[in-house]
Design a protein around this nucleic acid. Structure first.
Length: 819
DNA sequence: GCAACGAGCGCC
DNA sequence: AAAGGGCGCTCGTTGC
């Protein structure tokens, strides 16, 4: 067996990979291929020189079928045994300060632990040599496939760079008071009440009736100690209350959950000051799609490598080894209370420690303003989640009936036309119908290249072939979708629809919304408004008795940001002159025609073009978007025409590409980081090795600054309307209900709506400065008793939805009250 | 029988 | 020639 090893046998660090690759075998040098180059690069970024490390693999022959796990089978275990024997010898001879294991194979064979996701980044004892220190991370080959893994590996290497300086395997020392006797507890509580800040962490469990209840609360006033108090007798609760109901700044991981829960239990915890998950998100936005304890509970999100749960934060911000399995409670309940309290204590202490590290990281990375915006929305969002929005249950029942009838009617027509029952949401059914039976030309999904029956494809076919079934399919889909997603959503027992907000849910800093943790309610960010058949769904959302809704939206917000980023004088002028119609004027420029000659159609096309062009929309997509609304607008545009519109758009506003896009490209290539005018920074980890990947990443990047700026702007305003209007002017009875990216909805006492509308305008005004120019994005306001617009039937002149929203300038409260 | 995934689609 | 971005929810299919 030829040994594939390199490096000095006096090395302080030993790198252990899984098994040699083709290149390594050919060259006889470990880590010599493309992945090896990346490894060397990642190490050097952490200040570790690969040539100074002793480099080897666990096994010295290629993995069967490229799968390392095959070495665990009988057929190949001799190769593994030989390799392990050699590895043990090497470690005992070299006695490095630190062994770095790369991948799940080395993790298991060096430490006996399973689960690289859990144990990567942990400082662990080696099972091959007593007292030997090991840190494992993902295999460097993984970083080639999953690009974000590179960021994680580099963070793990940063930890290695510290621990490679000495051989001792030591852990952070922490003193825990786990449900101590009353006198000890009282003394610690007294001390903790003098603290500058306190971290708080709760544990909950289900009682015999399945109700969630508090088990214990952990507090920490220093990273090296914690106190756990069970939710036990009166005295316990008194102490918990004392530690919570004070003005000491509180630190928490995912505090919106813990704080709401404590308040449900009658503990009015105050001064939510630092959420370690929010801070992490402000430092590392890519974690937005990662798991945390709550989303894991909901079981919805996909796992990513960059995460935001306490386990991940512990692994990158502290030297505490993985411990999250210690808190697992079996079906029979807690077996060892001391272990369980210990887990709670560790959570509290680690949370405290993480906040200290994050605080320092902000000084380097500079995204503290984004963190402060995120903290600002916590209280208002908790209030809105708890409150929910009242639902008109009569209308809801009426809509269910109406939609059922529509679905029935159209479904019968479809089944008859197709000659057999067709499920419009079954892809095989649809593909068979469209492309086998009807023999229509096959449309392919642009990304996957698979045959598609989505609405763009069907609309396009309908435009060309006018087959009666095509529109029927879309109708059924629409009505079914509306019913399934919005009418089947569970309304609370008090007839209120709720959602839970996720402050760390997006990479841009926008909020995300989803059903409440108990499964009731739904995502309130996607209630239909644009779709004609869906308009009445918003009508179900109504003001409480005696109250009226006030909805204020930023106007053209992202366009404002793009205009200033691009330093586009023409757009800036148009936006700043409220007497001018930006879409009409854009049409004037596109068609080179006088303002008076601009028809509805031309204005409409200019509007749709402008909307998507800023971020790289193509003719294919624009054409499809316009086609989709053909029935209501009577306007269509071929792919060619749509592309012409986009090209024209960039000709009349060339600065969008020349300044804005170009600047983004430069920043990405230079630092892989973008910073918004509101101080949010995001690193872009994506693959840039080939043209396609690079362009994908750039498109993502173009949208980041405008989207993030507007999201943060709105979140700043959410905080203000809550504090200045809801809390600050109790006489108005104003309540914050919902925000949707660039819009804020409140309700207030009837008669106060114009004052609230004006106050909201003030709260939403926020000067932004881009390239030295300062501007304020304007907002407009609508008032009404339900969330759908009031409108007029063009033919009959009859008012549709008389209690609906009207522009605040046209609001006449007195007359509307007669309705 | 359950979980994961893809397709499709709502909003900004 | 061609690939807007950001989210969450539902259904149907598929794979274990």
């Amino acid at each position: 067996m030829k040994l594939i090893q390199a490096g000095p046998r006096t090395a302080k660090v030993m790198l252990v990979g899984e098994a040699p690759t083709v290149v390594e075998e050919a060259t006889g040098t470990p880590f010599s291929g493309g992945a090896g180059q990346m490894l060397s690069h990642m190490l050097s970024r952490a200040g570790i020189s690969m040539s100074e490390c002793f480099r080897t693999n666990v096994v010295h022959v290629r993995a069967p079928e490229g799968k390392f796990e095959k070495f665990y089978t009988k057929a190949h275990q001799l190769d593994l045994a030989k390799g392990l024997f050699r590895l043990k010898q090497d470690i005992n001879e070299i006695q490095p300060n630190l062994v770095i294991g790369l991948g799940s194979g080395p993790l298991y064979l060096l430490t006996g632990r399973k689960g690289i996701d859990k144990y990567r980044g942990s400082i662990l004892p080696c099972i091959l040599r007593k007292g030997q220190k090991v840190i494992c991370t993902y295999s460097h080959g993984f970083a080639l496939k999953v690009y974000e893994a590179k960021a994680v590996i580099e963070m793990d290497f940063a930890k290695c760079a510290g621990d490679m300086q000495y051989p001792e395997l030591n852990y952070p020392k922490r003193e825990f008071f786990l449900n101590p006797p009353l006198d000890v507890r009282a003394a610690v509580v007294y001390e903790m009440l003098q603290a500058e800040k306190l971290s708080v962490d709760i544990e909950c469990g289900q009682d015999s009736n399945g109700r969630w209840t508090l088990t214990c609360v952990g507090f920490s006033d220093r990273a090296d100690r914690a106190l756990v108090i069970p939710w036990g007798d009166e005295m316990c609760r008194f102490h918990i209350r004392q530690l919570c109901e004070n003005d000491i700044p509180k630190i928490c991981q995912n505090g919106m959950f813990d704080f709401s829960f404590l308040r449900e239990m009658g503990i009015n915890i105050r001064n939510f000051w630092w959420d370690t998950m929010f801070a992490h998100h402000a430092l590392m936005a890519e974690c937005a799609s990662g798991e945390d304890e709550m989303t894991k509970l909901a079981g919805k999100k996909k796992l990513s490598v960059l995460r935001k749960g306490l386990g991940f934060l512990t692994s990158i911000y502290t030297r505490e080894p993985f411990y999250k399995d210690e808190g697992k409670v079996s079906a029979e309940g807690v077996k060892d209370w001391n272990e369980f309290y210990g887990y709670n204590a560790k959570d509290a202490a680690v949370t405290y420690e993480i906040h200290e590290v994050e605080d320092k990281e902000f000084n380097d990375f500079g995204s503290r303003p984004a963190f402060e915006i995120e903290m600002g929305v916590a209280e208002p969002l908790m209030a809105a989640s708890k409150r929910g929005i009242l639902i008109d249950m009569d209308l809801r029942a009426e809509l269910v009936k109406e939609y059922d009838e529509q679905i029935d009617r159209f479904q019968q027509a479809l089944d008859l036309g197709a000659g057999r029952p067709i499920n419009v949401k079954s892809n095989p059914d649809m593909l068979a119908l469209l492309y086998d039976k009807l023999k229509l030309p096959m449309k392919l999904n642009r990304k996957t290249k698979n045959p598609t029956a989505d609405k763009d494809a069907i609309n396009e076919l309908a435009g060309k072939y006018d087959h009666p079934l095509l529109k029927v399919i879309l109708r059924i889909r629409e009505y079914r979708d509306f019913k399934e997603r919005y009418l089947n959503a569970v309304v609370g027992g008090d007839n209120r629809m709720r959602c839970s907000f996720d402050v760390t849910g997006t990479k841009s800093g926008r909020l995300s919304s989803r059903a409440s943790l108990d499964g009731s309610g739904t995502n309130l960010h996607t209630i239909p408004v644009r779709k004609k058949a869906g308009a009445r769904l918003r009508q179900m959302f109504i003001a409480d008795p005696g109250k009226v809704l006030v909805v204020r939206d930023y106007k053209q917000a992202e366009t404002w940001v793009v205009a200033y980023l691009a330093r586009c004088r023409a757009l800036i002028e148009l936006l700043n002159d409220p007497t001018r119609d930006i879409h009409k004027e854009t049409a004037v420029r596109i068609y080179n025609e006088a303002l008076e000659l601009i028809t509805f159609e031309k204005r409409y096309l200019a509007k749709r073009t402008g909307h998507g062009s800023n971020y790289g929309l193509t003719g294919v997509r624009l054409s499809a978007m316009i086609e989709e609304d053909y029935e209501t607008t009577g306007v269509r545009a071929s792919v060619r025409e749509a592309q012409m519109l986009i090209d024209k758009y960039f000709m009349i506003y060339p600065e969008i590409k020349e300044n804005f896009w170009y600047q983004v490209e430069r920043d990405i290539k230079h630092s892989r980081t973008l910073t918004t005018p509101l101080g949010r920074r995001r690193a872009f980890y994506g693959d840039m090795r080939d043209q396609r990947a690079q362009e994908t990443l750039l498109r993502d990047a173009y949208s980041f600054i405008p989207q993030s700026t507007v999201g943060d702007l709105c979140n700043i305003a959410v905080r203000k309307v809550y504090h200045d209007i809801e809390l600050g002017r109790p006489e108005w009875g104003a309540e914050f209900l919902l925000s949707v990216h660039d819009s804020i909805m409140m309700q207030c006492n009837i008669g106060c709506e114009l004052e609230v509308a004006a106050a909201m305008e003030e709260s939403m005004k926020y000067p932004l400065t881009i390239h030295g120019e300062t501007f304020t994005i304007p907002s407009d306001c609508q008032i009404g008793f339900n969330w759908n617009k009031q409108s007029k039937n063009k033919e009959t002149g009859e008012i549709v939805n008389p209690k609906g929203l009207v522009d605040s300038e046209h609001w006449n409260g007195a007359s509307l009250l007669q309705v």
